[in-house]
Design a protein around this nucleic acid. Structure first.
Lengths: 145, 145
DNA sequence: AGGAAAACCAAGCGATTTACTTGGAATTAA
DNA sequence: TTAATTCCAAGTAAATCGCTTGGTTTTCCT
């Protein structure tokens, strides 16, 4: 049950933008090379993230992308759901699903629901700011060692 | 990030066997039709589960499958990991993974690790017996309504 | 003994999804 | 005006998914 590259690349890109938050627009090619991702492919992911209101773009030369909100206001959950859709292990626990007749007494559905809730609880509790803090902590520990 | 049918069908099948635990071998076709799954396909999943030691088989006429252990001794985690592999959202947090050079200071890895741990915590805490209890509870509630 | 019911096994296969690439058009700073 | 950049739509090779097919073997039942 892996995430696709959409979610993985997307989070990396957003994290990279968080690192440069406040520095004005960052061009895609710098993000792509910093994270070692195909620029053309990343473009599609970034396009989704923009439409979801998670980042803003500036067109033309010296243009680029920037977070639409402060790193503390954007969670991993926001990013992953934008790129991967509802983070549900089975269709029957996707938001506004209809189609399973035995809905009522389906025990496996209870299991999928608990998995889904657990996943969402984790990703909604981690913001880009938390990741920046983690990065700072890592660098500190490295310097001390 | 959906599970594949392997994990979903597999859990349903194991739950069905849990319902009939203690009744001797249950033939695949009855499980397949009870859960509305292709018998030939289910056969492959069941073969994996047997090799993992989660169920036993009896060959020949009047044969079939049965849980290798009591429902309380088999968790959803046992079943899903047998069929889906390590329940990790990214390769870099799969057990005995090697290959990511920037391992040391990778913040996204911390995120994937927390997701993975959370998922495993949930699925390892639910046994087939818990699911049987849940079923009983559901039926009781229905009768009362 | 013979037939039927079942597990077991290996390969094939069409449809879908994934992870991109290609080839542009539009916009804007220098 | 040109270079840098976003924006957009379509194509595509490879992998994966969700099975199916075609058997062989084992064992119970009559």
């Amino acid at each position: 049950m892996r995430l696709s590259t959409r979610g993985r690349y997307g989070l990396k890109a957003m994290f990279q933008l968080a690192i440069h938050y406040g520095e004005g627009p960052i061009p895609l090619n710098s993000i792509a090379s910093a994270q070692n991702i195909s620029e053309n492919y990343l473009e599609q992911l970034v396009s989704t993230l923009r439409k979801e209101g998670l980042l803003n773009s500036v067109r033309g030369a010296q243009g680029g992308y920037m977070l639409a909100k402060a790193p503390s206001e954007i969670t991993v959950g926001n990013i992953l759901r934008a790129l991967e859709g509802d983070m549900a292990p089975a269709d029957c626990v996707v938001e506004d699903f209809s189609g399973c007749e035995r809905e009522e007494n389906c025990v496996t559905k209870v299991v999928w629901k608990r998995m889904k809730d657990s996943i969402n609880q984790v990703i909604d509790s981690i913001s880009l700011q938390d990741m920046l803090n983690e990065k700072a902590k890592m660098e500190l520990e490295k310097r001390e060692a």
